[in-house]
Design a protein around this nucleic acid. Structure first.
Lengths: 345, 345
DNA sequence: CTGAAAGCGCTTACAG
DNA sequence: CTGAAAGCGCTTACAG
């Protein structure tokens, strides 16, 4: 065991081979005899040698690092997303440089920092990206993937869950069950997720010529959902069903409806959420909600990313991945069998 | 705007200066005239130049990257920890390379990968580290910090919340309030956090010659807490107060006690948790719990880490940071004023 | 299969 | 203050 940094030259001397041989021993697909490889490996083991990734990146122009930009880690949907991304990248031998952007921060502030470190690609979750930044990435041949976001006419992969389709299906479910006055609790106003969920829900209700839904805003937070529910019931017309743009708000709404308004769920009010976070399946809530296929979305995002890294010419893909409604206890159902997707957890 | 990678030589040519001058313009504390700096900056801006961090790291032996190893991101306590670490490091100009270790994975599997990338330091959260690995890091002069974990006789900084003191205080609170038969729901058996919380709780009860507490195991999960509570009440002697090794289990226990056992909290049973996760303050729970000073712990960890990076000779510090009990609605209190720390959120 | 050599893009003594 | 040059630790044609 030596101390300090051990280089390939030290290993070469120890093994009695050239420094090139050491490098070859650590790279697959190189021409090296089994005998030499073994000698190098023994020497490397003895000295505690590991190749310096910085030097490798510099010369090979591949860092094996992916930049991952997240916002809103406090929303319980995103830890699961992060976890899935991490597993996926790690398993495929990629490192992840993580960035967290605050709500008031732009991705453009952190992207240059990421690119300094020669990341092979950038994944952006729950934050948006300016066209200028995309152009910059393109110049550097660095692929960009948007997760659960999209920007029109941009040269970046994007993979979203089917926000519009899901919300339309939820509108149908509630109307078919005989609800008369629907309501929507929106998330953060200027996010595409909240906007799309609202649009799908409202447009389907309009198409079916049902009463226009009520609306309140809950900023994607528990407390916001709680207060939004109170606000909805404080008005003249009261809703008999509420669709919330995420689960966190739905759980807040449930607590407000049950504990403060003393109404029964689902007998007097139905509540449906979006995300299927862990808390949604807690015994106390048993929330009926929409579950995006997070694992599939992440795996697709990762696969496409790696593919574009090896082939930067490939045009960008915009994908939508449908999820499923998870039927639990907070919404009344239509009489006709609804192909319910029962909670299988 | 050029395409492809722009180097300091390109900028030098554009600005009509030497490549060294470009480098100096991008490093503070170097001797360069204001005039030259401005010319370089203009040229860099024009060409879209950013220094290559890999080359910089190679020559300067400082990557400005910290390796952050986490397990258990799904436990809602850790997203907050991660978030706080990220903010802290980012604010101080450091990048973070994130690693997630699965429950069955050792830190020793990922540490070499981290060190390949020349991280300046490693922070390990909720996972343990073998002495060999610590030795390896020491040889590379790479400081290691354990967060909420400690290993005896190891050359690594460690910062923990006061698990033992907190649990003793909780035992006192419950006994002083007149509870007769306490119970403990343990987390994951072989973690130091669960063990310390158990030890503090049990030892204080023993010291006060109160009835020995009951015990069940909940694996730090909601469902585990739910079932552990049921198990405790299925026995001959029933508890009148339960201390749970984390909030997640406490919330499960509450749901089991209220919804399934139909007992009132805190009139018939008191429940206290640990962590003060967001969910603990939800209207439906209002959990009395122990709140570690996460922000302070993280900031201390970060400060010490950066200090040890600049001075690797500094001996390792083992710190314990006390938190506070947050009084909400799930535990009966002593009659005497208890200096209660009211929930200020 | 193997080694000598060039070069990735920087920082930093060194000399002026 | 400024520039020419060495060197960080690798990979990869190139020649043998």
């Amino acid at each position: 065991m030596t101390r300090g940094r051990v280089t390939s030259f030290d290993v070469a001397k120890e093994a009695g081979v050239s420094q090139s041989a050491v490098s070859r021993a650590f790279n697959s697909g190189t021409s090296i005899s089994e005998k030499t490889r073994l000698r190098v490996e023994a020497a490397a083991e003895k000295l505690g040698y590991r190749p310096n990734a910085m030097a490798r990146t510099l010369i090979s122009r591949r860092s094996n690092m992916i930049g991952l930009v997240m916002a809103d880690i406090v929303n319980p949907f995103y830890p699961a997303v992060l976890d899935t991304f991490m597993r996926s990248f790690q398993q495929l031998g990629h490192r992840v440089m993580l960035f967290m952007v605050a709500r008031d921060q732009q991705v453009s502030d952190v992207l240059p920092q990421l690119l300094e470190y020669q990341v092979d690609g950038v994944v952006i979750t729950s934050a948006t990206l300016s066209p200028e930044m995309v152009e910059h990435c393109q110049r550097l041949q660095t692929p960009v993937t948007l997760f659960n976001r999209y920007v029109e006419g941009i040269q970046a992969d994007s993979i979203c869950c089917d926000n519009i389709g899901a919300s339309r299906a939820i509108a149908d479910l509630l109307l078919d069950a005989g609800h008369r006055q629907l309501a929507f609790i929106a998330g953060v106003r200027n996010t595409s997720t909240s906007q799309d969920r609202e649009q799908g829900f409202f447009s389907r209700i309009h198409e079916r010529r049902a009463t226009a839904p009520l609306k309140a805003e809950g900023h994607y937070q528990y407390q916001g959902g709680y207060e939004a529910a109170l606000a909805l019931f404080a008005g003249e017309t009261k809703p008999d069903a509420i669709f919330c743009a995420n689960d966190l708000m739905a759980l807040g709404a449930i607590d407000a409806i049950r504990n403060q308004l003393k109404l029964n769920i689902p007998e007097q009010v139905s509540v449906i959420g979006f995300d299927d976070i862990k808390e949604a399946s807690w015994k106390n809530y048993q929330l009926t909600t929409y579950r995006p296929r997070v694992e599939k979305m992440v795996n697709t995002a990762v696969e496409n990313m790696l593919e574009r890294i090896s082939n930067p010419e490939r045009p960008a893909l915009q994908l939508i991945e449908a999820g499923e409604i998870v039927i639990r206890q907070t919404a009344r159902l239509p009489e006709t069998i609804y192909q319910p997707i029962v909670d299988e957890r």
